Amino acid sequence: IGLLFLFFSLDFVGGRLGFVPATVAAPWHLSLLALPFLAVAAGSALRLIPGLRETPLWASLLIIAILSAGPGLAPDFQTYDIPASPAAIFGDNQVMLLKLEPEGALQPGATIVLDADWLSTQPIDFDYNIFIHVVDDAGATVAQLDTQPQAGARPMTSWLPGEIISDRYELAIPPDAAPDLKLRLGLYNWQTGERLAAGEDDALELHNTD
């Protein structure tokens, strides 16, 4: 009885008022490791406070706990439409660039924004950098960005297989750049400079998006 009292109290106070994460308060089976300690503490509380033994109080706690557990038990689903073919596959099928959506024209003086969705197919053992280069017809780089995913908030070693990572990149192109430009995006080892293969190339290449 003492165990039930403390268990339901934990669910109500922790799950409803936010003192305990929902994954601990509900579902309750995640707290099974704490059962021996909860039983001792609850039994002591009942001896020290006889009023806790009243049946109406138990009924109220039971109802409150069940009602408060509902939102915590509800699954949180997100849907994503996987494209028929990814924009690029890097390495040995390690990382997929599901889609890359540019905003703005690839031209001198413009700012181009790229929205990307990444997917790892297996655990990644290194935090590869993302490079984005805007190059002219002669192959010279006129603008570039080197960054970690989500500006370092989600390095690739933190990606779970099957998890989709959304990111956004922004580049300003100098106004004096040559007019015939293309964009190259890829992954590289920042310690050695070695790039991951992207098919037969070492980067995904985009031409003018205007």
Rank of each mutant, 00 (worst) to 15 (best):
F77D: 12
A39S: 10
P102R: 05
T209R: 06
L38M: 13
P123H: 04
V113G: 06
V142P: 00
S158T: 14
K99F: 11
G199R: 04
L100C: 07
A41E: 04
E194F: 11
L98M: 06
A172E: 11
S9G: 15
G152P: 03
V24E: 08
D125N: 13
L30N: 15
R195I: 07
A74G: 02
A153C: 07
D76N: 12
L67D: 09
G15A: 04
R16W: 14
V20K: 02
E103A: 14
Y188Q: 05
A140I: 13
I66E: 08
G43L: 06
F90I: 02
L38I: 11
G193A: 03
P21K: 03
D176E: 14
H29E: 14
D127L: 02
T147L: 03
I66W: 08
A138S: 15
F19A: 11
F126T: 04
G162L: 11
D117H: 10
I124T: 01
N208C: 07
A178V: 03
P108M: 05
F8L: 09
D137G: 10
F90K: 00
A140F: 12
S166K: 06
L32N: 09
K182T: 11
L187Y: 01
F7R: 10
A198N: 05
E163G: 06
A110W: 07
A26H: 01
T141A: 09
L100W: 03
L35K: 06
Y169G: 01
Q150P: 03
T147C: 03
L119G: 01
R154S: 12
I132Q: 01
L3M: 09
L97Q: 00
A88I: 04
D146I: 15
R168Q: 15
P83M: 07
D167W: 02
G152Y: 04
A34H: 06
L73P: 03
E200N: 11
E54C: 10
L185F: 09
A138C: 08
Q94S: 11
P102K: 06
I82L: 15
G91D: 01
P36L: 02
L4K: 07
P27D: 04
L3C: 04
G15L: 01
P175F: 08
L171P: 00
L73R: 05
L6P: 00
A105C: 15
I89S: 10
T79G: 13
F5H: 10
M96L: 15
L187R: 00
I124E: 02
P75K: 08
G91A: 05
P149A: 04
L6V: 14
M156P: 00
D81A: 15
G152Q: 08
S85V: 15
P75S: 09
